[in-house]
């Protein structure tokens, strides 16, 4: 089990990470989600021992590693952009950690590691001849070859083509499950976080905004920032009269406590009658069906549509009480 308690990191005067706790069990994967500058990479580097802690501690399997230097922690880190050594070929990149550990005969281990990531026989290849996906797998093989006791991945899919990403995410998820060690993965993509993480933690301004299982955090993100990071689009300022919620010039028949509030509308559906009348702002196809966007105050609410709806057309939407969340 990998535990990080009260992690706080400062860069000069800048607070990068502030009092964050992380617990990841063996065979479990935690996805750290956040926009750039939210502190997720710093948290990863802090766990690896690459940046000094202002306060907090890192424990692995109950052993306190806080004052152990990086190279003795046994925590593997796959860097964003992979940090493959440009002066070494693929084989020597993968064997680097083994040699550092004093292992001289690395040939079989390297072959096995490359085999595991589907790059058998690429030992002599120069690293600048690799495609993005191959580089990512070499970086993973390089880290896994050292048999780390915990694995950290910083935007492992970040530099891949979007079309290619989803497939690689699936493969990666399988691989991680096979390693059976605690894994922390940093991403800024909510879908990727859900696909790879057993747990998700959303970081905002160096603090943990919300954490829990992917479905739980999606259902109740707890804050505007977390909601937006998790892929919600409709977060608006609204005024509640007690019986209805006024969002811009739309009045939703929902009973919430009276007053001004920021609300997240998770979901809505088009209804034929009894719904709230709204105007369609746009409509387009997004596989497998059509969507329509309606303006709701300052935000856009997307609903599934049976077919293309002309811009400006009036439709009625229905919103379930439980899909409206006060933030």
């Amino acid at each position: 089990m990998l535990e990080a308690r009260g992690i706080t990191v400062h860069y000069d005067d800048l607070v990068a990470v502030s009092d964050v706790d992380v617990t990841v069990g063996s065979g479990e994967t935690l996805a750290l989600l956040g926009r750039s500058g939210s502190g997720k990479t710093s948290l990863l580097r802090a766990i690896a021992g690459l940046v000094p802690l202002v306060s907090g501690s890192v424990l692995l399997g109950g052993t306190d590693l806080t004052s152990v230097p990086t190279h003795e922690r046994g925590i593997g880190l796959v860097f964003q952009d992979f940090a493959l050594f440009p002066h070494l070929d693929v084989g020597r990149n993968v064997s680097y950690g083994l040699r550092a550990a004093g292992i001289v005969d690395t040939e079989t281990s390297v072959a096995a590691a490359l085999d595991a990531v589907g790059l058998e026989g690429m030992e002599r290849r120069s690293v600048d001849q690799l495609s993005g996906g191959q580089a990512q797998r070499v970086a993973l093989a390089r880290t896994l070859a050292t048999r780390p006791k915990a694995l950290l991945l910083d935007e492992p899919l970040g530099s891949l083509d979007p079309a290619y990403r989803r497939r690689v995410a699936g493969e990666l998820s399988q691989l991680l499950r096979a390693t059976a060690i605690p894994t922390v993965i940093v991403t800024h993509d909510a879908q990727e976080a859900s696909a790879l993480g057993d747990q998700i933690m959303v970081l905002d301004g160096g603090r943990s905004a919300v954490s829990g299982s992917p479905d739980a955090v999606w259902l109740s993100p707890g804050s505007t920032e977390a909601a937006l990071m998790l892929g919600h689009t409709c977060v608006v300022e609204a005024h509640s009269t007690g019986t209805s919620l006024e969002v811009g010039d739309v009045s939703l028949p929902v009973a919430v406590a009276e007053g001004q509030a920021t609300v997240l509308i998770r979901r809505a559906t088009i209804v034929t009658d009894g719904g709230t009348p709204v105007t369609v702002a746009y409509s387009h196809f997004r596989g497998p069906g059509w969507v329509a966007g309606v303006q709701l105050g300052s935000a856009i609410l997307e609903v599934e549509a049976p077919q293309r709806i002309a811009e400006g057309e009036k439709i009625q939407i229905g919103i379930d009480q439980q899909d409206i969340i006060l933030l």
Binding site: A48, A100, T143
Partner: peptide, 17 residues
């Protein structure tokens, strides 16, 4: 790129190495 030295450290290489 400082990540290269960081990567070496996480792979178990000492500072001198």
């Amino acid at each position: 790129d400082p990540a290269l030295e960081g990567a070496a450290a996480t792979l178990g290489a000492s500072q001198w190495r």
